[in-house]
Computed example of a mutant assay.
Amino acid sequence: MHTSELDLNLLIPLEALLEERHVSRAAARVQLTQSAMSRALARLRRALGDELLVRTANTYELTPRARVVKRELEYLMPRIHALGRPPFDAATATDLVRLSCSDYITLLYGEPLFTAIFQQAPSLSLTIEALSPATVADVEHGRVDLAFVPFRPASNLSWLRLFDEDFVCLLAADHPVDRVTLADLASYPQAGAVFLAEEAMILERRLAELGVQPPSVLRVPYFSAVAAALPGTRFIATLPRRLAVRYAEDPRLRLVEAPAELNSFSYGLVWHPRLDQDPLHRWLRTQVTLLTG
């Protein structure tokens, strides 16, 4: 990208357009009117000699040149943004940080993490969003700063493994099964939390590989709802161990080891590479790793 041919005032609109792939969303992100962003896009197209965004049936797609420019901006823009910032000081930071995670993470680490963050950065603002099928795209487009996910994304996002986890089974205390086998998982209805396509695949794909197809399935968006569905039923819930042991404190529930054929998996942090060296983001990642490492 030849920045000498480009008005540097257009770099921020350019970054927003290439990440959002949508004129209205990009305009809202940088607090411009839609018409002003449309004019900026027209100027960028002339300066770079490329359409950058091409309209398709339902959205805009990046041209090959735009993808190259986007990769360059991912390393250039953090340095430009940092030029206007004072040195990071948690005690005086007033930023807004957006995290995405499941109730599994908030139950296990929410209290100590929130305490650590706000003791050191009392003026920081923190927004927690539920994991969803859009989470990875939200991280890619800058709508989420940091996400806790049970898989490593296939995209070029930065990833840090936090811990390994395995599955156990949670069921009603009066459930007739004493030791869960693959045959039991094929015979009894299943209850599970599904909020990411990739998360569902971790367990369901493995069961399919083993030829296990439950007779019926209850899918809910939160693990707490899974636990609430078990007492008095014949459901079997296959859950992460760290979470299941918390719910097993309920006398109406019982914890049973899952079949050995079910693989363990890794939980980790994912973020955009442009935040690799961002002082606030590095500080935040350190708070997480101190608790989970």
Rank of each mutant, 00 (worst) to 15 (best):
M1G: 10
T3D: 03
S4G: 05
L6M: 14
I12H: 02
L14W: 04
E15A: 12
R25I: 11
R29M: 03
V30A: 05
V30Y: 08
V30K: 03
T33H: 15
L41M: 13
R43S: 14
R46Q: 13
L48Y: 10
T59K: 14
Y60D: 06
R65Q: 08
A66Q: 00
L73P: 00
L73C: 00
I80H: 00
H81L: 14
G84Q: 06
F88T: 06
F88I: 13
F88D: 05
D89S: 13
A90H: 01
T92E: 01
A93L: 07
A93R: 07
L96D: 04
L96A: 07
S100L: 12
T106K: 13
L107P: 02
A116H: 06
Q119I: 00
Q119M: 05
L126S: 07
I128G: 05
E129L: 12
A134H: 10
V136F: 04
V139T: 11
R143G: 04
R143Y: 08
R143W: 08
V144F: 08
L146D: 10
F148V: 15
V149D: 03
L160M: 10
L160R: 07
C169S: 12
D174K: 12
H175N: 01
V177C: 03
D178S: 13
S187T: 15
G192A: 11
A193Q: 08
V194H: 06
V194E: 07
L196D: 02
L196R: 02
A200Y: 01
M201N: 08
R205K: 12
R206L: 02
S216M: 09
L218T: 02
V220H: 00
P221S: 11
A227L: 08
I236F: 00
V245M: 07
A248N: 01
D250F: 02
L253Q: 09
R254T: 03
R254D: 01
S264L: 11
F265R: 09
F265T: 09
V270G: 05
R282V: 15
W283I: 11
T292V: 15
